[in-house]
Design a protein around this nucleic acid. Sequence first.
DNA 1: CCGCATCCGATACGATACTG
DNA 2: CAGTATCGTATCGGATGCGG
Lengths: 138, 138
Amino acid sequence: METEQIRRASEDADVMRADSLAREIFSGVANKWALLIINVLGTRTLRFTELRTEVEGISHKMLTQTLRGLERDGVVHRTVYATVPPRVDYRLTEAGEALRETVNGMCAWTRRYLDEIEAARRRFAGQDRGATRGQQST
Amino acid sequence: METEQIRRASEDADVMRADSLAREIFSGVANKWALLIINVLGTRTLRFTELRTEVEGISHKMLTQTLRGLERDGVVHRTVYATVPPRVDYRLTEAGEALRETVNGMCAWTRRYLDEIEAARRRFAGQDRGATRGQQST
DNA sequence: CCGCATCCGATACGATACTG
DNA sequence: CAGTATCGTATCGGATGCGG
């Protein structure tokens, strides 16, 4: 029986479990810089400085740091050319491209719901938020 | 012509632009707690305490805070019942469910590539990472 | 050009406690 | 049960400078 293997996997692969490997990995990519980097890379290969300009507002430090994390997890591939001055290329791995599909969806979502969200924010600004229905319970 | 409108929209709706509305919104949802909450909600309606147990490891404070942000952006809907003790239900809005589709993809990605990532990490641990090809440039 | 280290301010986060 | 507030810490993240 593969019961043991299944059980181990299901615990370890559940992002909702606080100390699972899945949660650890998920937390690593679920931040704005990582997702934006993955999104610009797409199917292209970009140099460090190109990434820096494309992902507006990211600092030198955060770009390096985030790229290290992604490289470590095998999401991006890093190629160093021993030239003067040095040249370093970054591209998505297969895993990275798979992840990019969903990230792309998130960006599309942002564009799609821009206006609705802006409206929701205005509504939220001046609001009551009191109780709507009263029932007795428990 | 709608040139003006188009240009305004394209600048404001681009997540890569540092000060765009799109980036602002994207940054708001692109963090682990928001994404995990959106993911557990799915099509269900959950109470505050239920969310607290389902999203393992989240603190009372972060749950409240993140839910406020999501409510503000019209991603989750909050229903307060004037009962004793109080009861508050949370469910995704239409925008929230749309976002959830992609978040679901991210969770699936984590499960799918768990082993590969674990392997990549081991490879990264003891590594050289020196130059691979030498060319003259610029 | 790219990476690493350091310093330092800002904010994310958890623990605790009080209210209705 | 749910929300708000406060406080202390840890991590994030930007600026700067040196080294290959």
